[in-house]
Design a binder for these strands. Structure first.
Lengths: 128, 128
DNA sequence: GCTGTTGTCTTATGTGATTAATACAATAGC
DNA sequence: GCTATTGTATTAATCACATAAGACAACAGC
């Protein structure tokens, strides 16, 4: 798990996002025990309280659950995880398109920019 | 000019973004005088100091300039404005694609999602 | 049963963002 | 020239975020 933060948003919200991404991408598989709050905090380089806050919020979403002293676990509900993934993707798509349309870009221009950038990334990977 | 803020980022950074968008979209045309700091602040529902901070930063970017007591004006440099627009777009595209690829979506899946969403928006507009 | 680890809670402190309330010099407009 | 408006600066107060340090009950594992 790679942890990195920007300074244009609260750390605890970024923690929520990154753990969530870790879950939907399988870095934290369904049913698997997460490292303890303290360990995760150390790993991410944040205060245990901050990590606790993020995990508590993920628990409210149902993506993880805690067993008093045994630790914290990723949900076994694959449907919920897929739902979370689809939800994340949809929000990204909507946010992106809203921003681009607001800037005045036409639909075909957006498609063009996307395919261009995808091509470049592919080229980058090939040359790397 | 529509002002709205989320609580997951400092207001002054959101102000910077929104004024910048206003400039590149022509809501604030090149060379035009902006409302005073106080008026803009009132309009946006924020403190004048916060608006001042945002405008000062836009001034460092060169998108606006201030004349002591006459007010603040949008740059007449269309090249700079177009450059800002392209820069904003590129950042949106990159951020979006990074997020989607990290979630594990394939290139063609991304294209599909985009075109789907664009189709729905078109339908929305048509029905409205 | 003991012990260490777990999630959880509490209190205190520091920092940055934001608001609030002014104040000032410069000057456009009359 | 006067005056109101302008950008700009200063100081203080408030709030959320983040850290720090420590405490507690519960219980898994021995």
């Amino acid at each position: 798990m790679q942890w990195q933060f920007s300074n244009d948003a609260p750390i605890y919200t970024q923690l929520i996002q990154q753990v969530k991404v870790g879950i939907v991408t399988g870095a934290f598989p369904p049913g698997e025990r997460l490292p303890s709050v303290r360990d995760l905090a150390t790993e991410a380089g944040v205060n245990p309280n901050t990590m606790q806050r993020a995990l508590a919020e993920l628990e409210r979403d149902g993506l993880v659950y805690s067993q008093r002293t045994a630790g914290r676990f990723v949900t076994e509900d694959n449907t919920m995880i897929n739902q979370a993934k689809r939800s994340l993707a949809e929000r990204h798509v909507k946010t992106f398109l809203e921003a681009m349309l607001r800037l005045g870009f036409q639909r075909d221009e957006i498609i063009t920019l996307i395919t261009q950038e995808l091509g470049e990334e592919e080229a980058d990977h090939a040359s790397a």
